[in-house]
Write a protein that binds this DNA or RNA. Structure first.
Lengths: 132, 132
DNA sequence: CTAGTTGCAAAGAGTTTGCATGGCG
DNA sequence: CGCCATGCAAACTCTTTGCAACTAG
């Protein structure tokens, strides 16, 4: 069974610090290992990523083609109440705090009988920079 | 390299027919194999799923936890121009053709500098039936 | 007949787990 | 000290590929 408490270790700290230092970027397990900036074994890294995701420090993204999962630093709990825009080209995640989205949720609930979870919904497209 | 034309075969037809018969449901490769309703080898099934997805007959969904990809019958090309709502509990996919979504895209492009691809964006939440 | 397709088995990528050793508290 | 964490290698899951036999057109 899983542990009841969790220790504060050097490896977990390094993984979290790495993500905190690059809040706008996404990384997959392989990237962290290959960079060799973080001396952590494969298994430990995956365990750390799972734990940090579960604790809410990281966000995890799957890939449509079944490729590796990407992780990004999760700045705050506020992300649970707003929408995210993710660029299909560069992977950047844009936080969108806008009253219009709240209106949208209300409309969908009222007229389409569906309760949208903003924290779990990501709109995909192309960001300003990539559109050039 | 990949073929220049494609043959009409019994196996591909059966896979497509199966999905067409269950337009509201999602299936992963394993489910189709285990059901044994479709006498098709594993490799052939994956090849058929990839082809049918590429041709636009099926929609493919990745899983956040890295589990198997799920496929669903794609009723029409119209799906590329409207949004989809996917229930986190029952997995049902709801098509949402609504002018308000077009307005939303325009707003995000104008005020947030982001061009949303409606065909690739899925809003997750709870549907009417599951909310009870 | 020719080129695409099938199915098996083997390979591959990404991730998880078993287990002995090492480290936090 | 008692657990928990680490790291290596092996196992596992999902998917893709190589190849010889087969089949649609």
């Amino acid at each position: 069974m899983s542990p009841t408490r969790s220790y504060h270790t050097r490896q977990r700290e390094m993984v979290l610090q790495f993500f905190a230092a690059h809040p706008a970027e996404c990384f997959c397990a392989r990237q962290l290992i290959d960079q060799k900036q973080i001396p952590v074994g494969t298994a430990t890294l995956y365990r750390a990523l799972a734990l940090l995701t579960q604790e809410g420090h990281l966000k995890k993204f799957a890939q449509a083609d079944g490729g590796p999962a990407f992780y990004q630093y999760n700045e705050s709990d506020a992300c649970r109440s707003h929408f995210h825009l993710k660029c299909l080209r560069c992977g950047r995640l844009v936080h969108m705090d806008c009253s219009l989205m709240k209106d949208l949720q209300d409309h969908i609930a009222a007229d389409h009988d569906f309760w949208v979870d903003s924290g779990k919904s990501i709109l995909y497209g192309i960001c300003k920079t990539c559109r050039g």
